[in-house]
């Protein structure tokens, strides 16, 4: 029987690789009896979705701009390189 620690690790890895048949079976069995790990699994999916929305929020925030100093610095780096 998997421990919660092992199950949580497999849940995380299942987002990054295909688990083996043995791992999937063991994990499924654990999840049928452990509602805490089931909840952890849902949280991992929530994190994935939330991270995407968080990035979109920053990308769409047009008040975030390169500072004038940064623009000037980049512009002179471009000029320097072109010479």
């Amino acid at each position: 029987m998997l421990s919660c620690k092992q199950a949580s690790r497999l849940l995380s890895q299942s987002l990054d690789r295909r688990l083996t048949w043995r791992e999937r079976t063991a994990l499924r069995l654990h999840l049928t009896i452990c509602d805490v790990c089931r909840r952890f699994g849902r949280q991992l999916l929530l994190l994935r979705e939330a991270a995407k929305r968080m990035v979109r929020l920053t990308e769409q925030n047009e008040t975030l701009q390169l500072s004038q100093e940064a623009k000037a610095r980049i512009a002179s780096a471009l000029d320097l390189e072109r010479q």
């Binding site: 920053t58 990308e59 047009e62 975030l64 701009q65 390169l66 512009a75 471009l78 072109r82």
Partner: peptide
């Protein structure tokens, strides 16, 4: 013209990088 890229896309690229 790289200066045109900076003017037209600089802020967008910055937000893209900053978000990540």
């Amino acid at each position: 013209d790289p200066h045109a890229w900076l003017a037209d896309h600089g802020d967008y690229l910055y937000r893209f990088a900053l978000a990540r």
